[in-house]
């Protein structure tokens, strides 16, 4: 029973990272119908940027008090901002020209962008995993006999706070409304005077910034990062977005937590070498049997 709870908490921590990444997939898919294959690598970039900022600040070990807040805060916001900028650049340089091209063209381009980013990171930090400074003190709190680390609290807390902020933005602001309108019907949105290019760029900015947050969070949580992390994490987060219903923000979060929990339990019950098989099997089953996802709706084919 303890092990069960411990794995559940593990899964939720893991899932909050997937959920943050999944939001970017789902927002971009919702607005331009593209699986932004490079999104997972933007997430890894988030870890790398955080790492670079912490190194710049001289933060190599455990931080306390104001130093913790300032350094971690700078790394978090810096990574989010830089990732946001990278996302906007990717959209501008690689995807915008292909907005009306046959559907597979932007997907193939996105795979290309992903490979370029991975190679850049490989050159930057080398082909092996890179240690990430353990900036958080590590007192564990024991709840009902299960130890929960401060990392886990921070990971889940940050993720939930970010998601709430996103919900407020999308449903409570003009720009958020413009995003939703564009996702629903681009032509109608244009006729209503919405600047489509700006709205799509904004979507990439926010989605990629969330990936940056996820990158920071995962660095803090795992205390390690690797140029190739984004491939697997991205695929799992995409699975989460599909599972929740692509285009649906709440669905992406739900899917993210579910995938995290599945992975955590598969590792526990079947062994780590089967966890990827389990997650990708879910991806295939979800797409085959419920492509509209848990919270999505099916739309009739346009003729």
């Amino acid at each position: 029973m303890h092990e069960f709870l411990a794995q559940l908490i593990n899964g939720i921590s893991l899932g909050s990272i997937y959920a943050l990444i999944a939001l970017g997939y789902t927002m971009v898919y919702g607005i331009i119908g593209l699986i932004n294959f490079a999104h997972g690598d933007v997430y890894t970039l988030g870890s790398f940027f955080s790492l670079a900022i912490l190194a710049l600040l001289g933060a190599t070990g455990e931080l306390h008090g104001p130093a913790l807040l300032i350094d971690a805060g700078l790394a978090l916001f810096g990574a989010a901002l830089l990732c946001g900028i990278v996302g906007v650049l990717i959209e501008r340089l690689a995807y915008r020209r292909l907005r009306n091209a046959p559907r597979l063209a932007p997907l193939i381009t996105a795979i290309g962008v992903s490979f370029i980013l991975e190679n850049a990171m490989q050159v930057w930090k080398g082909p092996s995993p890179v240690p990430f400074p353990a900036i958080l003190p590590n007192p564990a709190v024991t709840v009902a006999g299960v130890a929960i680390s401060l990392q886990q609290f921070v990971v889940v807390g940050l993720a939930i706070a970010t998601m709430l902020a996103l919900q407020l933005f999308v449903h409570g602001t003009r720009m958020g409304r413009a995003m939703r309108a564009t996702a629903q019907d681009r032509d109608a949105a244009r006729l209503m005077g919405i600047d489509i290019n700006k709205t799509i760029a904004l979507t990439f900015l926010i989605g990629s910034a969330l990936a940056g947050v996820a990158g920071f969070v995962s660095g803090v949580y795992y205390q390690s990062t690797w140029f190739f992390n984004g491939f697997g994490a991205g695929l799992k987060a995409f699975t989460a977005a599909v599972l929740g219903g692509i285009g649906n923000l709440a669905g992406a979060m739900l899917g993210g937590f579910l995938i995290g929990i599945v992975e955590s339990f598969a590792t526990w019950l079947l062994g780590g070498q089967w966890s990827n098989v389990a997650v990708f099997a879910i991806l295939i089953l979800a797409l085959v049997f419920r492509p509209s996802g848990l919270l999505g709706e099916t739309l009739p084919e346009k003729v």
Binding site: I35, R103, L104, V242, V277, F280, A281, I284, V288
Partner: peptide, 27 residues
């Protein structure tokens, strides 16, 4: 089971399959 999926979804399913097969051979 997968070929009724549209373009990019099919691509991702095949990607998942491509990840599973070597993993199974490894396991």
């Amino acid at each position: 089971p997968t070929l009724r999926l549209h373009g990019d979804y099919l691509a991702i399913v095949t990607l998942g399959f491509g990840e599973i097969v070597p993993q199974i051979f490894q396991n």
